[in-house]
Simulated assay, not measured.
Amino acid sequence: MRLLIVEDHAELADAVRASFARRNIHCDLAHNAMDAELMIRTVQYALVILDLGLPDEDGLRLLQRLRAMRHSEPILVLTARSALEARVEGLQAGADDYMLKPFYFDELHARVQAILRREGGRLQHRIVAGALEFDPDTHLFCKDGRSFDLSVREGELLELLMRRLNLVVRKQTLENQLFGSGETLGSNAVEVYIHRLRKRLEAEALPLNIQTVRGVGYMLQTQ
């Protein structure tokens, strides 16, 4: 799962990202509306945390434009604008929640969890692929009731493939979801993790195959 934090205060954005990382939730950062819109068009985010006081455009206008373009990802507004009229305007523009600064991170995290539960229970319902189960809440992969460890990137990759079992996932989608924006990648970065993941599935004797669809991407299949 990857979030986008749209916040022009760099130290605050870094602190929030670090706090989410300690809970195994990965975040990209955008410090202005233009970068945020480009990143939202490129990466499929589970949720966007949006400040309204951005340097190049009012965040409310960005919110309205995203909804007009039918971007449906949940958006939590995190702002210092405390007036009742501002809160109402933000919710009417399409925000899923509205939270005021200053704030406690535990509350922010709880609100993110609540929104994602409403959006489909992503943090609660187990994902199943044959004999393999994944619990997004604990980030544990289990076979026959026994959990086994994967690296963070291997786990993210396997989760993405499990969510699209028997469907092709484009290589570009995997790059965007696994690495986000701003990271310099080798030409075979995804292939390296696919190779490692295949070895792990084989070592765990899991009846799953990761098929390569040439020129397109990869597909997880049960044997």
Rank of each mutant, 00 (worst) to 15 (best):
L62F: 05
L84G: 06
P55V: 01
L150F: 03
A10D: 07
A21K: 15
Y98P: 02
L167Q: 09
L66P: 11
I25L: 14
P136K: 14
E204A: 07
C142Q: 14
L208D: 00
V213D: 08
R67T: 01
P102G: 07
L116P: 04
E154F: 02
P74I: 03
S19V: 00
Q113L: 14
P74V: 06
R118N: 02
V169L: 12
S187R: 13
V192I: 12
L116I: 03
R118A: 00
L76M: 05
A110K: 05
C27A: 15
L132W: 05
R87A: 09
G186F: 01
A21W: 07
V152G: 04
D135M: 10
K101L: 08
M1D: 01
R163N: 05
V112D: 06
G120D: 09
V190N: 14
E154W: 05
L54R: 05
E89Y: 01
N24E: 07
R200Y: 00
L185M: 02
V213E: 11
P102R: 12
G94W: 02
A21Q: 11
D137I: 03
Y98R: 02
E7L: 02
A21Y: 04
Y98D: 06
L167F: 00
V112A: 11
L161G: 08
L38H: 13
P136S: 10
R81A: 04
H31F: 13
A205D: 15
Q64C: 01
G94P: 08
A30K: 12
L140D: 09
R2F: 10
A36G: 11
G130E: 13
Y193W: 10
D51F: 06
S82W: 00
L12F: 10
G186K: 09
Y98S: 03
D149T: 12
R23V: 03
R163H: 01
L123D: 10
L165I: 03
L132R: 13
R65G: 01
